[in-house]
């Protein structure tokens, strides 16, 4: 570590001190990040015990169950098991769609806030974060009550004569989208706000000066320049949406399971299976890491250009 720094006498003299100063950080990362992940990794390779615990015996059974279908008695030639990959796939597009919706609403919101006079910006930012003072579970349950068949939204629409019969929202993909969108919108707004706030508005004037229309300016100048904020926001929405379980559980019902619900069920449910839950979590983690890795690669390449 010290060798990568410019090595003059001073920094060499401080090197031991620097190691000690880094210790709390490493301890924190090790204890709260690496250790739990390692534990999950180990568990995913253990054998399930009947009453929900584990037996300390190496086994590939969990991964086998996730990816392969060996028939009812385990003696047929292995085929690909689509059940869990299907749940995974649905999770990915639900999370992708939620990210897109958050972007479509979050970008104008962030733009609006960043272009207010400086004194009023903090008020708008505060308003965006207000829902976060309430627990996510409570907010999701409230949403459930709002959109049920005889909930206030349907009652109101029927009272206004817009609908004759209740419009079923609960237990649909729409409800899951609504839940995800509502839960993670601020994660999109805040990084984009930070990027737009640094945006040099003279660039917009320069584009207009050079005959660009408003839409062309937005597309060719504004979006590319604030792109880091857009990408950061998208990751911050996509990743937790992918593993979300509250919204799909409470709003989506049994048909609309996502990967987060599956994992939660393995650890909490009556028919719990810790090694399998750990294996699903490891697959999820790998997918997320691959996505982040591709993003990091594209960033360094853009930077090198």
């Amino acid at each position: 570590m010290a060798g990568q720094l410019p090595s003059n006498d001073d920094s060499a003299a401080f090197a031991p001190a620097r190691v000690w100063l880094m210790l709390p950080t490493w301890a924190l990362i090790g204890f709260f990040l690496l250790l739990p992940v390692l534990l999950m990794l180990v568990y995913s390779f253990l054998t399930k015990e009947f009453r929900g615990g584990v037996i300390w015996e190496f086994s590939l059974e969990s991964y086998d169950r996730f990816f392969l279908d060996r028939g009812l008695f385990g003696d047929e030639p292995p085929k690909i098991e689509w059940t869990y990959i299907g749940i995974f796939w649905r999770s990915a597009w639900q999370a992708g769609l939620a990210t897109l919706l958050c972007l479509l609403v979050g970008f104008p919101t962030a733009w609006f806030i960043a272009t207010r006079p400086p004194q009023t910006r903090s008020i708008w930012l505060f308003l965006v974060t207000i829902p976060y003072w309430v627990n996510l579970l409570i907010r999701t349950v409230s949403m459930k009550f709002l959109i049920r068949d005889n909930g206030p939204v349907n009652e109101l629409l029927m009272a206004l004569g817009v609908l004759d019969a209740p419009f079923t929202m609960i237990n649909t993909n729409f409800a899951v989208q609504l839940g995800l969108f509502y839960s993670y919108l601020p994660f999109m707004v805040l990084p984009i706000y930070a990027a737009v706030e640094r945006y040099n508005f003279a660039l917009t004037e320069a584009a207009a000066d050079l005959y660009a229309t408003r839409w062309v300016t937005l597309w060719l100048i504004v979006i590319p320049v604030v792109r880091p904020g857009i990408i950061a926001g998208s990751i911050l929405v996509f990743v937790p949406s992918l593993g979300a379980f509250l919204a799909p559980d409470l709003l989506g019902g049994a048909k609309n399971w996502m990967i987060g619900s599956l994992i939660e069920d393995q650890f909490k449910g009556a028919a719990g299976n810790w090694p399998f839950g750990a294996a699903v979590a490891m697959v999820l983690l790998s997918v997320v890491l691959v996505v982040l890795f591709i993003y990091a690669r594209s960033q360094t390449r853009a930077g090198a250009r």
Partner: peptide, 20 residues
């Protein structure tokens, strides 16, 4: 005439070059 319709170009004080 809107700014983008005027046959006028500007050299801005801080250049305002497109960074990307």
């Amino acid at each position: 005439l809107a700014p983008n319709k005027r046959p006028i170009n500007t050299v801005f004080q801080n250049y305002a070059l497109f960074p990307h």
